[in-house]
Design a protein around this nucleic acid. Structure first.
Lengths: 218, 218
DNA sequence: ATTATCTTTTAGGCATACCAAAATTAATAA
DNA sequence: TTATTAATTTTGGTATGCCTAAAAGATAAT
C-alpha cells in the first residue's frame, strides 16, 4: 500500500473514533473519504494485515497501538504546519487546512521539530485543536488559561489571575471553584466565548472571564 | 496520470536537457529515474498526448512551452524550499535535497511566494543553482558580486568595489577588465574560491577577489 | 553492405486503489 | 418470528504505472 493511502485511512479512523475510544464503521469511513464502501472493506483488510488496525468484518475497526501512533504523528505534522502557516507566514486560519493536508505527508521529524521549536513548541493549533509532542503525547499538565485552551475537552480549575471579590463571587455563584471539573462543549469563534458544563449545569462564559481562569487539561 | 508522476518526468527532462537546449533520450531518462526504458516510452507517449512534451519515437524528447513552464515551477519550489531549510531552519546544505524533493510537489503559489519573500526573494539556492522567479524567469540583469553568484555559468564583468591600484593591476594582469566575459567552471566549497576561464585562460580566484568583482549573468 | 551492438518499442503481466452491481449479513420493525 | 431495511462484503471490472522478455529499429565497425 502507498504510504499516503495508509496515512489517509489511519488519520480518518483516528478522527472518527474520537481518540480511539470508539469503533469506526465502514460507512463512516466511506463517506468521510468519499470512497465506495467496497473500497473501504478492501483497504481495511490490508491495514489489518499490516497490523495498523483491528478489523472484524461486519463489526467495525479500531487502531492498534502502532496505527494510533502513526495517526498521532500525522495529526502532529498537520497541526504544526497549520500553526506555522498562520503564525509565521500570515495565512488566515481558514485557508491553511488544504495546504496542511499535503504538507502533513512529508515525513521528516527533524523538519517538524525545528518548525515547532521555532514557534516555541505550541500546544494548540489555530483552530484550537491540541498538538501532540514529538513522542505523541498531548499536553495535559501545563497550566493555561481557559482562554488559551480554546478547545473542546475536560479541564480542572487550578486558580485565577483576577483575585477581586467581584470576580471570585461570580465564579462561586456558578460553581467554578478551585478543583472543579469543567467541560468545554463549544468555542464561539465570533467573540471567543465558551459554552461549558460544570456540575451538570451549562454556562456560557465570556473570553474575558475565561482569560482569568487558570486550569489544566484532564 | 498522477500529478506527481508528471512532475517527476518533466523535472527530469528539464534537468537532462540543460535548459531545454538538447533533446533527451529514453535511456537517459530511464537511468536517471531508475525505471525500465519501456516504462519511459509509455510515459512519454502520455506526456505527448497531454502536450507537455514533443516526443518522436526512436528520436528523443523535448519539453513544450507548457511543459517547460511546469518544470521551471517545480525547480522554483525545490530551490526555494532548499534555501528555506538551510537559511531559516538551520539544516546543512547537504541534507536538504531529499526533503525538498517531497516538498516541491506541494503546489501552492502563495506558500512559495511567502517563503521567498520572507528570505528577500533569493536568486540562488544553497548549492549555487539559480532560482527562477514567480513568472518562471531567471535573473539575468541584476548586478551581483562574483562571490554572491557562486554558480557555474557565464558572466560579464561590470565593475569593481575595490578601486585600489593594487587590485586593479591584479585584475588587468589576468585580463579581468570591465566588459570581459568570464565563465565560472567550478566553485570550491571549502574556501569559496572559483575556477574561471577568461579569454581561454584558466584562473583560480579567491573568495576575497571574487567579492570585489561586480558582474551580471549572461 | 553486412554484421554486430546498442537503443527503443511492443506485447503481455502484475499490484495498487479505486469503482458498480449483486449477494450476503446484520439490524429494525411489524 | 418474520419481513423489511440498511450495512457490509463479494465479485468482477477499470486505469495507472511499473515490470520482463522479445521484436524492431538505429548506429557503428569491419
Amino acid at each position: 500500500m502507498r504510504s499516503e493511502t495508509i496515512e489517509n485511512y489511519l488519520k480518518t479512523i483516528y478522527n472518527l473514533s474520537s481518540d480511539n475510544t470508539r469503533v469506526v464503521t465502514n460507512q463512516q469511513l466511506a463517506s468521510k473519504l468519499n470512497f465506495n464502501p467496497a473500497s473501504v472493506t478492501e483497504a481495511l483488510r490490508k491495514l489489518h494485515e499490516l497490523k495498523y488496525v483491528v478489523y472484524e468484518k461486519s463489526y467495525g475497526t479500531r487502531l492498534t497501538a502502532s496505527g494510533a501512533r502513526m495517526a498521532i504523528d500525522i495529526v502532529r505534522r498537520h497541526r504544526i504546519w497549520e500553526t506555522y502557516l498562520v503564525k509565521e507566514l500570515g495565512f488566515g486560519w481558514d485557508e491553511v487546512h488544504e495546504i496542511a493536508e499535503e504538507l502533513e505527508h512529508v515525513k521528516n521529524d527533524k523538519l517538524i521539530n525545528k518548525l515547532a521549536e521555532l514557534m516555541g513548541n505550541p500546544v494548540y493549533d489555530p483552530h484550537g485543536d491540541p498538538i501532540p509532542d514529538a513522542k505523541g503525547k498531548f499536553q495535559k499538565d501545563k497550566l493555561i488559561t481557559l482562554f488559551e485552551a480554546r478547545a473542546k475537552g475536560s479541564y480542572r480549575i487550578m486558580g485565577t489571575s483576577d483575585h477581586s471579590v467581584v470576580f471570585l463571587k461570580y465564579l462561586e455563584k456558578h460553581g467554578l471553584i478551585i478543583g472543579a471539573s469543567i467541560h468545554v462543549k463549544t468555542v464561539e469563534e465570533v467573540d471567543g466565548s465558551l459554552l461549558i458544563t460544570c456540575q451538570k449545569k451549562e454556562i456560557v462564559i465570556s473570553q474575558k472571564v475565561a482569560s482569568n481562569i487558570i486550569c489544566k487539561e484532564t
